[in-house]
C-alpha cells in the first residue's frame, strides 16, 4: 500500500499521535466500563446495612454465655465470673504465643465478647473446655484461656475481638 511520508516530530509521527490518543482514550473507557462489573460483587447496600448487631445482655447470668450472630458469624458473649477475670489477669503476658493483656481485650472486664471462630481453620470452639478453663477447639486441638487467648495448639492468634460499644449497661452494639 502506498503511504505518504509522515512528518517526524521528536521521533513520534503526527499520525502516531492520533493512534496513541485513540488507543489511550479507549483504554481509559474500557477501564471505566469494567469497573461496574467488578464493583457489583462487593457487598450490596442491604448487606452493608446489616453489618451491625445489637445484643441484650440482661438475661445472661454470671458464669454463662450466649452466642450471638454478627455478619453471619458466631460471637461469644460471656458474663465472666470474678475467678475467670482473675485467672485472665494473672497470666504472664510475655509467655503467651500471641501476647495480649486481658485489659486490651475487654471494655468492662466482666463482659468478654469474641468472634467464636478458631483462628486456625475456622471451626467453632467449645466453651468451658480445654486445659485453660476457657475454650477448646475439637477440630485440631487448640486451647484458649478465660480471655480467649491461644495457649496451646495450632491456632496462631487469639480469638478475634470484634468492634463493639456499650449503648447502655445492658445493651451492646457489635460492628
Amino acid at each position: 500500500m502506498t503511504t505518504t511520508t509522515p512528518v517526524e516530530e521528536d521521533g513520534v509521527t503526527r499520525r502516531d499521535f492520533l493512534y496513541v490518543a485513540a488507543g489511550g482514550l479507549s483504554a481509559v473507557g474500557a477501564a471505566a466500563a469494567i469497573w461496574p462489573f467488578i464493583s457489583q460483587m462487593n457487598p450490596s447496600a442491604d448487606v452493608l446495612a446489616l453489618s451491625t448487631t445489637e445484643v441484650d445482655l440482661e438475661g445472661i447470668e454470671t458464669g454463662s454465655e450466649i452466642t450471638a450472630v454478627w455478619q453471619g458469624k458466631p460471637v461469644f458473649v460471656r458474663h465472666r465470673t470474678e475467678g475467670e477475670i482473675k485467672k485472665a489477669e494473672d497470666v504472664v503476658v510475655a509467655d503467651l504465643p500471641d501476647p495480649e493483656p486481658d485489659a486490651d481485650r475487654v471494655i468492662k472486664p466482666e463482659w468478654l465478647i469474641m468472634v467464636g471462630v478458631c483462628t486456625h481453620l475456622g471451626c467453632i470452639p467449645l466453651k468451658e473446655q480445654g486445659d485453660y478453663s476457657g475454650w477448646f477447639c475439637p477440630c485440631h486441638g487448640s486451647h484458649y484461656d478465660t480471655s480467649g487467648r491461644i495457649r496451646k495448639g495450632p491456632a496462631p492468634t487469639n480469638l478475634l475481638i470484634p468492634p463493639y460499644e456499650f449503648l447502655d449497661d445492658n445493651n451492646i452494639k457489635i460492628g
Binding site: T2, T4, L18, A22, L25
Partner: peptide, 21 residues
C-alpha cells in the same frame, strides 16, 4: 460526552488509515 470524543477520534483514525487507498 466521552463517546462523542472517542467517535471523533476514531473517525479521524479511520480517515487517516483509509487515505492511502
Amino acid at each position: 460526552l466521552f463517546l462523542l470524543i472517542l467517535a471523533g477520534l476514531f473517525y479521524a483514525v479511520k480517515k487517516k488509515v483509509w487515505s492511502d487507498l
